[in-house]
Computed example of a mutant assay.
Amino acid sequence: MKLWGIDLGGTKIECAVLDPERNLEVVVRMRVPTESVNGYDHILSQIKKLIDMVAEQVGERPRKIGFATPGVLEPDSQLMKNSNTTCLNGMPLKTDLEKILGVPCELANDANCFALAEALMGAGKDYHGAEVVFGVIMGTGVGGGLVVNNKIIGGHHGIGGEWGHNILEEGGEPCYCGKSGCVEQVISGPALERFYERASGEKVSMKTVLERYHAGNDEHAKATIERLLEYYGRAVSTLINVVDPNLIVIGGGVGNIDLLYTAGYERIRKYIFNKGIVTTPIVKPKLGDSAGVFGAALL
């Protein structure tokens, strides 16, 4: 049986079909725009349209489908929550998908799907025996997913791995989650850009901030990258103290910054509850933007 996965993003919906008999070879990949401004029912219709298109290409219908979703399905109420595609919140997405598609559907947060795909198909293949893998997303937002023995740990409330919404900076910026100073409001790309803009009076991208830091002639860029490294060290040390994973994989645009794996790694030593000893492999992902849809298929 082929494995079908859908990555439900804010701007695009992607479907991938994998063949487990051919080492998870990709049979077909296809995308349609999400067009979330048109509302919840329109998103459902876009998903159905995409499934129909892919089924025609593959020559068979799916028997079940995995979905990587923004936000998460509340285990008790079976309603969506915490989604930045806000029209999904409070909706019975799993029930409605199964109704319109006529097959069982399995839903997981997109960060969890990222972690699962990297554990099984990506960076985890280089670390055989890594029973506990934590996938970190550091980009426009900050999130995480936890995989133990090749299985996503969704948790009692469905929020397992939500690393981005713990308080990192007392009295920091307010977050949409209701708290202030969350990890996401400190070391996400937009948060770091805001920090630089307040200090310099100039609005630039993180790419430009990093270039200016390496040029060595911009004190505000230096302060911004120093802030990233210091708070990254604190946040990751807490993650290691609580979970102590065998492998951490960092995705997202901020995760591409090489300093995180050198100077940032040294900052973790300052805060870890292990006499300054850190041996956890912390690596970049291998699957790029395919991780979400591959993880969905692996559900």
Rank of each mutant, 00 (worst) to 15 (best):
H165F: 10
I152Q: 02
E162T: 12
N150W: 00
M138K: 00
S188G: 10
L192S: 09
V132E: 02
A108R: 13
L192Q: 09
K207E: 14
G178C: 12
F114W: 01
K203T: 00
E193A: 11
L146K: 00
G181M: 06
F195V: 07
D126A: 13
I153C: 13
L192M: 15
H128S: 15
V186C: 10
E173K: 15
G145W: 03
H156G: 01
N112M: 01
C177I: 13
L107K: 08
G160S: 07
E169I: 08
G161A: 07
A199Q: 15
Y196I: 04
K207H: 11
G144L: 08
M138Y: 10
E162A: 15
C113V: 09
E162F: 07
N112F: 03
E169Q: 08
T208K: 14
C175Q: 14
D110Y: 05
G129T: 04
G139D: 06
D110I: 05
A115I: 05
E106Y: 15
G201W: 03
Y176P: 09
E193V: 07
G141N: 10
A119V: 04
A108I: 03
G145C: 05
I187G: 02
A111D: 04
G139S: 14
V136Y: 02
V136G: 06
V186D: 07
I167T: 15
I159G: 09
G181D: 13
S188W: 13
L120F: 04
N109G: 07
G201R: 08
I137N: 00
R194E: 08
G102Q: 10
H165Q: 12
N150R: 15
G135A: 11
G161F: 00
C175T: 13
G141V: 03
D126M: 13
G141W: 05
G122N: 08
W163E: 04
V147F: 01
G124C: 13
A119P: 02
Q185Y: 01
K125S: 12
N109L: 02
G172V: 08
G172E: 11
G139N: 09
A119Q: 13
V136I: 14
K125P: 04
L168T: 04
C175A: 10
G160W: 07
V204H: 00
L116A: 12
K207P: 00
A123V: 09
I159L: 14
A111E: 12
A123L: 03
L120K: 15
C113F: 06
T140M: 05
N150M: 06
V186F: 08
G155P: 12
C177P: 01
N112H: 09
L101G: 09
C105K: 05
S200M: 03
L120V: 07
G158Y: 12
W163H: 04
F195G: 02
Y127L: 08
G158T: 09
H157M: 12
E184S: 10
I152F: 00
D126Q: 11
I167M: 11
A130T: 08
A111P: 04
V204N: 00
V133C: 02
F134A: 04
K125G: 04
E162Q: 15
H157V: 05
G143S: 10
G129H: 06
G124A: 09
V183C: 01
E169N: 11
A191F: 13
F114K: 04
Y196F: 15
G178P: 12
